[in-house]
Design a protein around this nucleic acid. Structure first.
Lengths: 297, 297
DNA sequence: AGAATAGTGTCTTTTAGACACTATAGT
DNA sequence: ACTATAGTGTCTAAAAGACACTATTCT
């Protein structure tokens, strides 16, 4: 291409002479919401264990937010894109590779980090807990898998001239062996012709670093929203699983129970039956299935 | 809070002493995909005009990509977040305010801009064309609304051990009064247990700047994907509209025709009927509706 | 009158919800 | 035998698809 600009330069000449300005640039970090699903302890030899949703957090060893728990993450390096950075962090901080990864949202409020201007490009990752052979946080940082409870509380729509404002509050509770964290995040949305605002606000926060309660809420809503039309859950399942297990995973993420017959009809195209069965369960054995990746959208 | 870190500093002391490192930081820009819907010329006084989807592009007056057409956008300033930047750009470059705005995706490949390291946080905006009283591009830059044709071509799934690779190609054609642009973008997705890769690749590009063909494709897929479960289309409609008009907007975005009766059943909760009717149409008048914002999800 | 669209009725098909019933290993 | 779950059958209700029919205004 030999086009010349207003100064008579070709593109090659322009780029050779180009010097980036010295205006202020943000740092860009990747923060990762890594979900997995684990079994609870079961009380009786007969009872199947319940499923619980867990997320990986890391205790901050320095200011700011010293002693609070943060999503694993780190800065994006030059010569890599955010996805590379996310994968690198995933390996370094959680010891996992080759798992489901999806970009969520870029959080960019200028004061979200008290040190300096840091944007966070957030990612959601899903891991089968059987895949977690490497214990998270081998290094100095203290890492832990927190069990997550996510409940919608306050919910209100107020109408105004030509529009609606919808406010919902979500209560997050996170528990690990020795730590309990909690947060309340308010999601408000103005829906009208002349305005379109969506906002997450941290109403209450006990022990979560930065704006990570927001990011976590965003991730949970995305996960819930994707559940029924995409086969995203399959990334949380082990190689072989029973349909009841799969149903319990859906249930723990959605926070409600589902009807067995309807559930099975719906997920039928997403799974393939095997000839293997569970054993020693204290009740009728259950057929084991594997994921039918063709059926996943 | 009086916690002290490993150096015996409180958070206040730490922050007061904090100096950001001088490692390389990216520039962050917002690029905007601004959609609107317009009427085509109608051949006969009887025939209703068709709808067409349009997107705003700006011809680049300098290197790089001199003479090519780019999405409107600009850098994010310190003390604003990406959404503020997007709104500012929307006003400056397209002369519109208070319209629907949604963050799409952050494109961050290190070489996407030949000058320097620039990440693009992309947004999608929807405007009712009646709202465009201010002609876009009053200033030096040449701006134009391009009519968009978006067709899926090649589509293939190849199975491999324990997974699927799905490849789809999309053909974009953009036409304004005096310019024709086109691009082919390939979307490939690997869906399997041990891998999760999603990638957009520009296969062919005639006249679109940077990686903007990618961003545009991403926006179109998002718009299509959101159509049926959210009332997002309503942001493209004027104050009063007929149900046939609304249907034609759905049809032009989805690229397929819909059945009238079923369509009306489905969108019924999203609209409110008025007592006004179209006039001088050369055929039976049509009732005018307005948006029922309560019904929008 | 007749072109072109507006608007509705209704039949069929598909999907979802509800719930009861039968089946079966393990102690 | 009994517990706890596995798995299926079937009825009902709701939603989607298909298509034909009637209604209405302007030239």
């Amino acid at each position: 291409m030999q086009k010349r600009d207003a100064n008579g330069l070709t593109e090659q000449e322009f780029l050779a002479a180009y010097r980036p300005g010295d205006y202020v640039r943000p740092s860009v970090a990747c923060d990762m919401v890594i979900f997995t699903v684990t079994d609870t302890e079961t009380s009786s030899y007969r009872k199947n264990p319940d499923k619980e949703l867990r997320v990986l957090l890391i205790e901050r060893g320095g200011h700011p937010c010293l002693g609070e728990w943060a999503l694993p993450g780190g800065f994006v390096n030059p010569n890599e894109n955010t996805e590379h950075a996310a994968k690198r962090e995933l390996k370094e901080e959680a010891g996992v590779e080759n798992i489901y990864l999806e970009q969520l949202y870029t959080f960019s409020d200028p004061n979200r980090d008290p040190r300096t201007w840091v944007m966070s490009c957030s990612y959601m990752a899903l891991v089968d807990s059987a895949n977690l052979r490497i214990q998270a946080g081998d290094d100095a940082d203290k890492a832990a898998w927190f069990q997550l409870s996510f409940k919608q509380g306050y919910d209100d729509s107020t109408e105004f001239l030509g529009g609606v404002r919808r406010i919902r509050r979500y209560a997050l509770e996170l528990t690990s062996d020795d730590t309990r964290l909690s947060a309340i995040v308010e999601h408000s949305r103005v829906i009208s012709k002349n305005c379109s605002e969506e906002d997450f606000r941290i109403v209450e926060n006990n022990g979560l670093a930065f704006d990570h309660a927001k990011i976590l809420t965003y991730a949970l809503l995305r996960l819930q929203g994707k559940l029924d039309y995409s086969g995203i859950v399959m990334h949380l399942m082990p190689e072989l699983f029973t349909l009841s297990e799969l149903q319990r995973v859906y249930e723990v993420i959605l926070g409600k129970t589902l009807l067995k017959a309807a559930f099975r009809r719906k997920i039928a195209p997403l799974v393939t039956e095997t000839e293997q069965f569970t054993q020693n369960a204290g009740h009728r054995p259950s057929r084991l299935y594997k994921v039918n990746w063709q059926g996943i959208r």
